[in-house]
């Protein structure tokens, strides 16, 4: 028996495999047993009703998909009344991702979500690249990140997870700002801002022009970010980006993540989350690893020149 459990602050997950926000909903229970997951993660919710972005909302590219959903939803009140109970039927803790255009709304969301015992974690999606036309968001700057997370921290005693953007120029500084402001965990990362133009009619392929690139090809980039941030902060990290198999989970954990989030793989294979959990157990078993948490940050690089590491982290 392998102990697959991991701790994220005070919260224990039965395994490190969680769905990524926005690519999952309780409706996946039609296909897989949700009680097997490390956590349940709801789609990002906003205070107000939002239509979301114009269609088409997805386009395929040579090396992945770009998507621009635009955080559609019926607002926080509807969410608390109708959506939270859908998740509360299952055992894994519920992580609720939220987003806003300004700090007041972010703080109000933190306060509102904290009122429910069924919400285990508040996740601040300060990194959605498709919320508005510019692709801008709080996670692009350490100052905005600090102010936003501080304001949320004041309004909630629940674990506060912060989802960072790979589009920030200096993610390590943004991550440190979030930690200082009181984040309990960093979720790395959201999608890469991107564009596809159709050559048949010269028009952008997505209704919102810009979209977030999602692809297993991005895994090495996000893995590098997780590695760098893990060296700079003390709080746990959840790695998200291009996880498609158990070895990818292992890789993220070796780089310093305590758990992973999975989006695309569950689109390709609706049963992927369960497959990956089972394979992770087999992988550990085959290697005599008793606790999966032993893998966290276990990358063997101590004997590598410090100079090389510093150079790598500066992107030289």
């Amino acid at each position: 028996m392998v102990d697959l459990s991991v701790r994220i602050g005070d919260l224990t997950l039965q395994n490190p495999v969680t769905p990524a926000s926005g690519s999952f909903s309780w409706e996946y229970n039609d296909v897989i047993d949700l009680n097997r997951l490390g956590a349940l993660v709801a789609k990002t919710i906003c205070r107000e009703f939002r239509w979301g972005n114009p269609t088409p909302r997805m386009a395929e590219t040579e090396a992945g998909i770009i998507q621009s959903i635009g955080l559609p939803g019926k607002g926080i009140e509807y969410f608390m009344e109708h959506i939270v109970p859908e998740y509360a039927r299952f055992k894994p803790p519920l992580v609720v991702s939220c987003s806003a255009d300004n700090i007041e709304d972010f703080a109000a969301l933190a306060e509102e979500l904290s009122k429910s015992d069924d919400v285990a974690v508040v996740e601040a999606n300060i990194s959605c690249p498709t919320r508005n036309l510019t692709g801008q968001n709080f996670a692009m700057h350490e100052g905005y990140t600090r102010d936003c997370i501080q304001a949320m921290r004041e309004k909630t005693k629940k674990p506060l997870w912060v989802k960072l953007s790979p589009n920030a120029g200096d993610m390590v500084s943004v991550a440190m700002a979030a930690e200082e402001a009181g984040a309990d965990c960093l979720v790395i990362a959201n999608t890469f801002l991107s564009l596809k133009i159709r050559t048949d009619n010269f028009r952008p392929a997505l209704g919102n022009k810009f979209g977030g690139l999602v692809s297993p090809a991005l895994k090495p980039i996000v893995l590098r970010m997780v590695y760098q941030v893990a060296k700079a902060v003390k709080i746990p990290i959840i790695g998200i980006g291009g996880v498609t198999c158990a070895e990818d989970v292992v890789e993220y954990m070796l780089a310093g993540a305590s758990a992973v989030g999975i989006g695309y793989a569950a689109f390709r294979n609706p049963t992927a989350l369960v497959t990956i959990i089972e394979d992770l157990e087999k992988w550990c078993d085959a290697r005599g690893i008793k606790k999966v948490s032993e893998l966290i940050g276990a990358v063997k690089d101590d004997d590598m020149e410090l100079d090389t590491l510093v150079a790598a982290s500066k992107g030289v």
Binding site: S25, T55, R57, Q67, I69, F267, P270
Partner: peptide, 16 residues
């Protein structure tokens, strides 16, 4: 018909 991603109702891509 509409372009679709998850097919399960989670991703809100196939809206009409």
């Amino acid at each position: 018909e509409q372009i679709m991603v998850c097919g399960i109702g989670a991703c809100y891509v196939c809206m009409r």
